[in-house]
Design a protein around this nucleic acid. Sequence first.
DNA 1: ATGGTTGTTGCACAA
Length: 265
Amino acid sequence: MLYYRSYVLIVTWNVNSLKARLPRVTEWLAEVTPDVLCIQETKLAQEKFPTEAIAELGYESAHFGQGQWNGVAILSRVGLENVVPNFAAGVEPDHEARIISATCGGVRVSSVYVPNGRALDNDHYTYKLGWMSRLRQHLDISCKTTDDVVVAGDFNIAPDDRDVYDVKQFEGATHVSQPERDALQNVCDFGMEDTFRRFHQEEGLHSWWDYRGGSFYKGHGMRIDLLLATSSVAERSTWTSVDRNARKGESPSDHAPVLLLVGDK
DNA sequence: ATGGTTGTTGCACAA
């Protein structure tokens, strides 16, 4: 049942295979009932998306899948219009399924899965920086700075040193390099901010923890899942949180959902 | 310096 709220709850979650995670995701949707859920790493072919199971929970969905790797989706209970898979026309299309956009309740929402750079000397690092440049072009072409815009997803970039558990462990590594942080800043310079930092300034608040070595229980993670928003959205935001409970229990994703509550105009 | 885990697929690779 769809009912009126005086806010919208927008969430991003890298589920690391929607096939493996479907029970956890549907259980979480039924409990939390977000208005919009941006999913990354569905790892599903286009035709394998569980449209019906999600519809039963009251959500429309749009999926841009490629199978095996990547794949992004947007679920909404407040409308889902003008769906655009890939970058907007006019930007060099990506050969992988890493961005999908739709208008949900008046907000232009993009679900993004930014490439993992792997290492500073890896071709994928170059691909990642170029991808972030194209994301900025995508915004310049398809949005106005005065629009209600949210770009949510797994950026594979820790915005600053507070966002990794131990800076020393990341010297010379991807996710924290200055070019990556500059690329993120360039996207924000479109007219968006990292909404999480509007509410929390402390270090040690993460959204991803390696499966290996008990990283979650040691607090060894990174904050790489972000909700960027234009000022018209950010100024109406009232609360944000990482749902660490979703990282616990049986067969969790290695990422936890990040939630943003946005008040009505 | 290495290893640790989970997901894909297919007996490695990506994260």
